[in-house]
Design a protein around this nucleic acid. Structure first.
Length: 349
DNA sequence: TAGGCCATCTGGTCCT
DNA sequence: AGGACCAGATGGCCTA
């Protein structure tokens, strides 16, 4: 009897749940991907019913005093059918609210994903990575506004990627479409260290990259590492060992300290329509002294086609996996506006 | 198969 | 009392 009422309530709740779910979650639910759900509710009910029976038999057991150790503390209020019923209903309502609350949280997170640099419908950032990237992004933007100077691309990307996992780092790098050549000071000695105009084929800058994690002994792995090997691979003997702080020349002693364990990213929209070079391209002298590659989740040898760049001639993204990636200008008007402002900053500095 | 990520349930705490 | 928030536990899915 009680059971049938509860089942009815649960089915009602189930309907509510469908309404509360976001489309993606509804889809998941429909596929039976969700967690415990109603099944657990049933388990809970079963458990409660057992408890109820225990309560009812409590007095008898006390007389026995053998089968179960006596409970300490205040005697539990007897779970009458009515109480049990109320408890169950309350619990189900609480569950529904909690689900709803979490859906709201996820919606907010999804909104955040969309305004953070690298948004990909196909390759969603995890929650934690989204928060890290957002934090880095905010930090990087703040630095730009505060200093009025444009960071060099590499520092910028590194700031964005600080503390991010390797896959996310690759995603960001892919989104920004880094051009490894820009990291070669010798080749671009006269080029200004700011970002290229929209549509520019590459970003000329220098290579000030330095891993704070290595130089300052900051905590890193698995997150927070800015080890160059995280983003690119330097050939043995290449001269860029020492690392410099992010935003070369921007960070000052009294400036806001960048939280070591976290990451800073800034996605300057698809501006970095620079070129990704295939590693397979015939090696130039530059290639011999410096190579760049971003490994995606254990990419590299035999792994995923990592993001490569090593001074080749292919101006396209090559094997970079950027499916579904949206540049910053792939979003709302607001974002485009913001992007334009960023470009202005970079061009003016 | 292990580990990462996620959705959900649950009980506790705080607040209204 | 009831709602919001939180953290721990659990189990499913996915990928390397």
């Amino acid at each position: 009897m009680t059971r049938s009422v509860l089942e009815e309530q649960m089915s009602v709740e189930s309907d509510e749940q469908q309404e509360l779910c976001s489309p993606a979650e509804r889809e998941r639910s429909a596929e039976g991907v969700t967690g415990g759900g109603g099944e657990e509710d049933e388990d809970c009910l079963h458990h409660l019913e057992e408890e109820e029976e225990e309560d009812e038999e409590e007095e008898e057991e006390e007389e026995d005093g053998e089968s179960k150790p006596k409970r300490r503390g205040p005697k539990k209020k007897k779970m009458t059918k009515a109480r049990l019923q109320r408890f169950k209903v309350r619990r189900m309502k609480a569950n529904a609210r909690e689900r709803n609350r979490m859906h709201g949280l996820n919606d907010a997170l999804e909104s955040l994903r969309k305004v953070v640099p690298c948004y990909s419908k196909t390759q969603k950032l995890s929650k934690i990575e989204t928060l890290r990237l957002a934090k880095n992004y905010i930090w990087a933007l703040s630095e730009i506004l505060r200093s009025g100077k444009a960071p060099d691309l590499m520092s910028f990307v590194q700031a964005l990627c600080k503390g991010l996992s390797q896959p996310t780092t690759n995603l960001v790098a892919g989104c920004l479409q880094l051009n490894p050549r820009t990291f070669l000071p010798e080749q671009t000695p006269d080029l200004p260290a700011h970002l290229p105009p929209v549509g520019a084929s590459s970003y000329p800058g220098h290579f000030p990259y330095q891993s704070p994690g290595l130089t300052a002994g900051l905590p890193s792995p698995p997150y927070g590492t800015m080890d160059p090997s995280h983003i690119f691979h330097q050939v043995k003997g290449q001269p860029y060992g020492p690392l410099e702080p992010f935003f070369d020349g921007v960070l000052v002693s009294d400036g806001p300290a960048f939280d070591p364990p976290l990451s800073p990213p800034l996605s300057i929209n698809g501006n970095f329509s620079s070129s990704f070079k295939h590693e397979a391209v015939a090696a130039t002298d530059y290639d011999k002294s410096f190579s760049f590659s971003v490994h995606y989740g254990g990419g590299g040898a035999g792994g995923h086609p990592a993001i490569y760049g090593s001074g080749g001639s292919n101006p396209r993204c090559g094997d970079l996996q950027v499916d579904g990636l949206m540049g910053f200008d792939g979003h709302s008007h607001h974002e485009r506006l913001m992007n334009a402002q960023l470009n202005a900053i970079f061009h003016d500095s």
